[in-house]
Design a protein around this nucleic acid. Structure first.
Lengths: 231, 231
DNA sequence: TTTAAATACGAACGTTTGTTTTTTTCTGGA
DNA sequence: TCCAGAAAAAAACAAACGTTCGTATTTAAA
């Protein structure tokens, strides 16, 4: 093993600084999902990660840079958890369904303690122009585009009515999943995820063709018990 | 006019203090819809309303009390704008549709500069236990319940398939409207409201009966232009 | 017109904020 | 072992935070 290969190997090894940087960002994403990206304070983050405020500034020149890095870190986490795995699923209706399921499960399992990182940050920043908002818009477009792409693949394979608008389908699926995640954070009722799954399945069902694989079974959501004589 | 009637009248006249209180709350709701309820600062609010910080504390003992009062003020605004007017609409499918339309229009018209006040505040507070979160949950339940009630009335009049679950319908309608409002804040594309309206109409259509009044015309959303040879 | 209460101001409190600077500790290659 | 550079701590900064207080002004009833 000669000098250059050694150097090449070493270059790929994360330095200590890079390791703590990643550790900081993982904590920052968790914290920001609850407190928001503005609510995320340097002092609080430093304490949570077990170091001093000044130490953080060795890794990030400013709070804005920290915010942007945190978004990017969260994006990678969600990408690897939600979007990458569906690459293994056969393109078409199955992949579209897997993507929906993954996205719902991501909300259901509270990967970030404050729920969906991007839902919270987007809602916080959508009224404040700047690089953070721009990045969030980009990410949102990416998510919707991926859903639309999966729908289109299903159409091209003849597994979904070719008359349907893929973007419209993406809008509805993503919207229903997000609504479930959001309400879940307010009142802890997991039935809302059943509602989202059911709604999505019912939306797709009339679009199925003779080439379509069967949709997985989706249990009907629990109906609220209505006592006789109550309004 | 005797003494007691005079006093009774006077009691209903808002005092000067009450007037400025209302003025403060109206500004606070606008500001909080952008900055959030925590991001809303006393100094900033005082400046926006044109008075001193100390002056504000004559009306609210603490920031928490100001936050709660702001939520209540916003609730009244939305109630009078979205929910009260549908009381004039004939119960049944028409009222259900009017409610959906009002709710979408409320998002579309940016009644608060930061979009839907409650969407933003709920997203901000859903991870922070306390009276604010409790109040937001209450309001969310109220909104969904009103939609479900309208759906149920439509069923009772035979204008909507009686097999449908009113709560499920409410979940879907509200969720689609909110999704449109949220994305609109990120990229200013009003086509998302057309998507929501279209999705809701398509959801209701298979549930119509021979007794149902006709649904208003809902234009199909613009389809995204796809250039040949593009992925 | 007098008077008491309601209302608002402006300064100051002690914290916490983001950021900078200085000093100390740690790390990894020669 | 030594030393240069990276990494973290420690201390300090001005600005903004929520809050309190004493005083001035304005309102509304007597």
């Amino acid at each position: 093993m000669n000098q250059s290969t050694l150097t090449a190997l070493k270059d790929r090894l994360p330095s200590k600084g890079e390791l703590t940087r990643q550790a900081i960002l993982r904590v920052a994403a968790d914290l920001a999902s609850v407190e928001g990206l503005d609510g995320l304070s340097i002092g609080g983050l430093a304490q949570a990660v077990g170091m001093s405020k000044g130490g953080l500034y060795g890794h990030f020149k400013s709070k804005l840079e920290l915010q942007m890095a945190t978004i990017e870190a969260a994006r990678v986490i969600v990408k690897n958890l939600v979007f990458v795995p569906v690459g293994d699923v056969e393109p078409g209706l199955k992949r579209l369904w897997a993507l929906s399921e993954n996205y719902i499960a991501y909300n259901e399992n509270k990967i970030f303690p404050g729920g969906c990182f991007f839902g919270n940050v987007a809602s916080e920043m959508d009224g404040k122009p700047g690089p953070v908002r721009d990045k969030m818009r980009e990410i949102y477009h990416g998510v919707n585009a991926r859903f639309a792409q999966c729908a289109r693949e299903a159409q091209e394979k003849g597994e979904l009515d070719s008359e349907a608008d893929p973007e419209q389908l993406a809008f509805e699926i993503v919207g229903l999943a997000r609504e479930a995640g959001r309400i879940f954070l307010l009142d802890d009722d997991p039935n809302h995820f059943a509602r989202a799954r059911y709604a999505i399945a019912q939306r797709l069902r009339p679009l199925l063709t003779e080439k379509s694989p069967a949709l997985p079974d989706v249990p009907a959501p629990k109906r609220r018990v209505r006592v006789a004589g109550t309004t």
